[in-house]
Write a protein that binds this DNA or RNA. Structure first.
Lengths: 388, 388
DNA sequence: GGCAGGATTGTGAGCGCTCACAAAAAAGCT
DNA sequence: AGCTTTTTTGTGAGCGCTCACAATCCTGCC
């Protein structure tokens, strides 16, 4: 009588030795071995019985509860591995335990930034044995956003909100308190992100760096084709303005574009008509692609006549003709950072790892066409190769 | 006494009128209104009580059970909307009910095909109020695949397996019977896919069409840079061979490449060195991008010297220089079809909607450089524009 | 007008796990 | 030793829902 452990509470108690249970024993269906479609997976009761402890002790071991004797813990752990036990997510969620799943809330899964972030979260979640769900926000409208958030939250797990656009930003605000959450945001204004469960890449600096680089090549100024901003104050725009102001050059009106190549193409057509435009910083690589196409159609050589710099460094950028100079943003790393921050939320303060942007210089940028006497005020940023 | 419906079974019965319950009534914590962090969401018991029916009846209404009186059903439905009741997924999963969630099992989320399929599934799932999970298969190794499948399956919901590569194909075979499942596969050989819960796009025909198109422009033959095949017999390759054989022209050795531009670039370098190569069909647009780049570096004009045709029609293809002629594959539609097939799995036979490929002719293809006398055997496929 | 047989509704139990508590065991103290 | 305190373990109950079954209601029909 050593392995007869604790059976499930609702079941009719320990069953006595087989000899004692006569045929009349109305033990119910439990008497017949019900090996219908596949044996049902092992539960904590199975583990408990095998280890000779109570189911609660098994639960404690699973959840890393402190007050379990070392020997017991080891025994249970061993039994768990031996039996190949895996906790049932649904049961755990129902009983109010820790859920071990993340739902990513995003308004888009196709743009490079969003989908790379998704990939990063998935990698980190998988490594931590979390399940990952995806819920797309269908519209910017407040009610729709609220509904999406609600549905995502009711899954029980943690939430990652990708707030690269207005819909996402709105979702960020709609998350009910108490739900473990982290937001992936555009760079917040100075100090604004402190103390919030947010992660981001410093794209203000990235924009400034890219702009400075173009200025350092001798361009009189740098034009900007911007992606839509999630908030009023886009920090990418701000970085570009900052670098321009810092150099004391004219700040042209930025062209407010969308996310896709077509939008860049249209912007490019407008820009191509102006001979004074010699350098364009684009809000993403797709936009840059469109601008390049428009420029080439207009007979403007790249980088001979105009220099183009993108943002993101998508895998194709290197193979464009000309190969695109761009700012590499580690979105995958950002996704991983978001997940890490989520885990730290129970414990240490969310120590925000911030992936650093990196300028990748390729063929689409160069000095302006007519050799302009170099402005003595800027001289620093001329080196080739990659810069952090 | 009309609204006092059925309380939850484990609770201590109906509570009598407040007057009868003296202060000594040890009704436990239920006596105090426990409005701690947010009222708990409404359950079927709440709905049942409000509607004056049993919880089981509510359950029947939710699950569309047939034997519920019309009036009752309407009453319950109304109560559900009024109270904003939403079934608890965890509880339902635990109790063995229909789960209303899909997990997509894929080895990759970044390639255009896979991620577009994912998007399609998400759209369809959201519309049907299903939750979607994603689980990436980390390695091709059998044990890893089995583990991934197992974990995905234990979530309780249905499974979509994206089998565009060996890992996915292996996963497809590892799904335990009884789990509702649909595979998204490369075109199976003739008849091989019949009766299986599979969906696909006929890319054999697509490859044949694209090849025929190039031949119709007068090219002596068409070379092929192939993506890796999930099975021994790639139907994309087969379609290309078929069209070549049909025209009675030489079938060159295909170049077995990977998925990414770099791989296409390397293939392109080899091809560029051969002046007899005048037309190249690439397994996807990324490969085509690499080939184009290599060709241009080698001084071969496109389409003046070589024609390039891709596969997929990624959104950027239109803005490449030259704009890429390619075969549009509706992966998003394929994802939606997969989900539809999943739903039909309970009911009608999985009526396989198969999105049709479509050749999109742009700038990267044209007649071969030295005007070759048109082969009288082929004449059909010369028209411009788009072809279904 | 009473009873079969269907339609409709209700009851009991349990899914696998976690809470809150109570009991038992092991220390620590005078 | 005998006591209290702490650690460790076990028991009861319930999360929200679905099964299986039993009870009720309605028909139609001889």
């Amino acid at each position: 009588m050593d392995v007869i452990g604790h059976t499930r509470p609702p079941g009719d108690g320990e069953q006595l030795s087989a000899a004692e249970a006569g045929p009349a024993a109305q033990a119910g269906p439990a008497a017949a071995a019900p090996e219908l479609d596949g044996p049902r997976p092992v539960s904590i009761y199975d583990v408990a019985a095998q280890a000779g402890v109570s189911y609660q002790t098994v639960s404690r071991v699973i959840n890393g509860h402190p007050n379990v004797k070392r020997a017991t813990r080891d025994l249970v752990s061993a039994t768990i591995t031996r039996l190949g036990y895996r906790p049932n997510r649904a049961a755990r969620a129902l009983a109010g335990g820790p859920v071990h799943s993340v739902t990513v809330l995003t308004s888009n899964t196709t743009l490079y930034g969003q989908r790379s972030v998704l990939q990063g979260i998935e990698e980190a979640a998988r490594a931590a044995d979390y399940a990952m769900g995806v819920r797309v926000i269908e519209s910017e409208e407040t009610a729709a956003v609220a509904d999406a958030v609600e549905r995502a939250a009711e899954q029980g797990g943690a939430l990652v909100v990708v707030a690269f656009d207005p819909a996402g930003t709105r979702a960020l605000g709609a998350v009910p308190p108490g739900v473990p959450m982290v937001g992936i945001v555009e760079t917040p204004a100075d100090g604004e992100g402190e103390g919030r469960p947010w992660v981001w890449i410093d794209d203000r600096r990235a924009a400034a760096d890219a702009t400075r680089y173009l200025l350092s090549l001798g361009h009189p100024t740098v034009h900007h084709v911007a992606i839509p901003s999630p908030t009023e104050a886009s920090q990418r725009l701000a970085g570009w303005r900052l670098a321009l102001a810092e150099a004391g050059v004219e700040v042209p009106e930025p062209i407010l574009a969308g996310w896709h190549p077509r939008s860049g193409y249209q912007a490019g057509q407008r820009l191509a008509a102006r001979p004074d435009v010699t350098a364009v910083l684009c809000g993403n690589d797709d936009l840059a692609l469109g601008v390049i196409r428009a420029m080439q159609e207009a007979g403007r050589a790249i980088p001979g006549s105009v220099s183009i710099v993108g943002f993101d460094d998508i895998p194709q950028a290197e193979f464009y003709t000309p190969a695109l100079t761009t700012v590499r943003l580690d979105f995958t790393g950002l996704g991983r950072a978001a997940f890490a921050s989520l885990q730290e939320q129970v414990g240490a303060a969310p120590h925000r790892l911030r992936p650093q942007p990196e300028l990748v210089i390729r063929e689409s940028s160069g000095p302006p066409p007519a050799p302009v006497p170099a402005n003595p005020r800027r001289a620093v940023h001329g080196r080739r190769g990659q810069r952090a």
